[in-house]
């Protein structure tokens, strides 16, 4: 069920990406570059740095607020994908017990700080990726990729992949429903049934590829697929880029949290 959910999330993110906010209208390339700069800057913080990272929350908060992305949805997604990072990070407090300070009788160790640092980095980087796709239609992403000189084969089949996820997932879910309605409890859900279902789905998919190819040929396909170019980078967007990159560098250089804290 959890996996079927992730499909509905895909549809949901897809629907969010057609909104018309200021952020949604930005050129995909601008958004991609800002997101990548953000991720790299966040990740470039040393292992035991925590307070300096906090200023970076301004970026996801800005996008969530302006593009009207439901906060709860982003949080839920974060929780779902957190296990691997948690599993790796949780060892830090136990392996590194160098004390830093005492707060109301509790000793805080560098291990705990690096653990929290990983968690904060995780929240920041993953939400940045989610917010990119929640504010950019997939067509926009593909256009951005192709204009950033990603090889055509990659972009074209990525486009087709996205188009047919919706079709094939529906088909798979129908098969699963048919299986489940005829199997009781755990019986009938073994690997053998899976192989048969996946095999049938695969054969159908390959036949579908043949039909799509026929449809393409019928309309004059000869090896290239035209790429749409609708966006143009406006001066406004260059400013958007410069401001964010500038802020990220600033936050990276100066620990705002510490500076504010020291005022007291």
């Amino acid at each position: 069920m959890e996996i079927a959910n992730s499909f509905f999330n895909l549809g949901y993110l897809d629907s969010l990406s057609y909104k018309k906010s200021f952020i949604h209208r930005l050129d995909p390339r601008i958004k991609t570059i800002v997101t990548l700069t953000f991720v790299v800057t966040v990740v470039s913080f040393p292992q035991k740095e925590l307070s300096g990272l906090l200023s970076f929350f301004i970026y996801p908060v800005f996008i969530i607020a302006l593009a009207e992305i439901p906060l709860g949805f982003i949080l839920k997604k974060l929780v779902i994908v957190s296990p691997f990072v948690l599993m790796v990070a949780i060892f830090n407090p136990f392996l590194d017990k160098t004390p830093v300070m005492e707060l109301y009788g509790i000793t805080i160790t560098t291990g705990w700080i690096s653990f929290l640092s990983i968690i904060v980095k995780f929240i920041l980087t993953i939400s940045a990726a989610l917010l990119l796709i929640a504010t950019t239609s997939f067509v926009g992403i593909c256009e951005g990729l192709s204009r950033m000189r990603v090889p055509e084969v990659f972009v074209v089949q990525l486009m087709l992949l996205y188009r047919y996820i919706f079709v094939l997932v529906e088909e798979a879910l129908r098969m699963v429903r048919a299986r489940d309605s005829r199997s009781f409890g755990k019986k009938g859900r073994g690997i053998k049934t899976f192989i048969n279902l996946a095999g049938i789905l695969l054969v159908r998919t390959i036949h579908r590829a043949d039909r799509i190819y026929s449809a393409m040929l019928s309309r004059g396909y000869s090896g290239t697929i035209p790429q749409k170019r609708t966006h143009r980078i406006r001066t406004k967007e260059v400013f958007y880029l410069i401001i964010w990159v500038g802020l990220f560098i600033l936050f990276r250089k100066y620990n705002l949290s510490l500076a504010i804290g020291q005022l007291f």
Partner: peptide
């Protein structure tokens, strides 16, 4: 040229196959 549509739908197939869970 026939490979491109096949690549696209097989990528989608991976997602679809992940919808079929098994014990």
């Amino acid at each position: 040229e026939k490979l491109i549509p096949l690549m696209g739908v097989l990528g989608a197939f991976v997602f679809a196959a992940q919808m079929i869970n098994f014990t």
